[in-house]
């Protein structure tokens, strides 16, 4: 069925057996992000050292797409230089905003290219982005706690140009 393009086996695998899940110490910053329209939530911690993402740990609640995305994201960014990881985030964001027109660069995004099919479903893009936005926010706070205090509150959700999909 058509949905198989969204529910790739690799996504379902990450959903059933998530990587790096569970909050760990030590950490430099912790954030809590929510998707207020569907109730997905993630609490995420980041540990950085010498410009490298040393660890990402999280607890999350949500649909298969948001759960799998947190697993894929954390596995991708852990051990990467912060700049490289931020570049990955931009790459993934562009893929999610492509409305099904992009396939994604597998050499760069690895397992995350499996989410290309999600970009065809505007209502689900936020699910795939939730943990990425949380990671980006936490990393900014970890790198420069003072600068990050002026950022949007975590509860405001991802500050993205993604259409609201669900009204009360």
């Amino acid at each position: 069925m058509k949905l198989d393009s969204m529910y790739q086996e690799i996504i379902l695998d990450h959903y059933r057996n998530p990587l790096h899940r569970g909050l760990r110490d030590p950490f430099d910053a912790e954030v809590h992000h929510v998707n207020p329209t569907c109730g997905d939530e993630v609490t995420l911690r980041v540990k950085v050292a010498d410009g490298v993402v040393e660890d990402v740990s999280y607890e999350s609640e949500g649909c298969s797409i948001s759960q799998a995305s947190a697993s894929v994201m954390s596995d991708l960014v852990i051990g990467k230089k912060i700049d490289e990881a931020l570049e990955l985030e931009r790459e993934f964001l562009a893929l999610m905003q492509s409305r099904g027109t992009a396939e994604g660069n597998e050499d760069v995004l690895e397992d995350a290219v499996a989410f290309a099919g999600v970009s065809k479903y505007p209502a689900r893009v936020k699910c795939a982005l939730l943990s990425w936005m949380a990671w980006k926010d936490a990393t900014a706070k970890a790198v420069d706690p003072a600068a990050a205090t002026g950022a949007a509150p975590a509860s405001a959700g991802a500050p993205l140009d993604v259409p609201e999909q669900e009204k009360p």
Binding site: M6, T37, C63, S64, I65, R124, E166, P168
Partner: peptide, 25 residues
């Protein structure tokens, strides 16, 4: 099974339901 996933698969069959907290969190 998260309601978002339930709703997506039902939609695939042409069935429209609401998923989420229904403005009653």
């Amino acid at each position: 099974i998260h309601p978002h996933d339930v709703g997506q698969l039902l939609d695939e069959r042409g069935i429209a339901v609401r998923v989420g907290h229904h403005c009653a969190r």
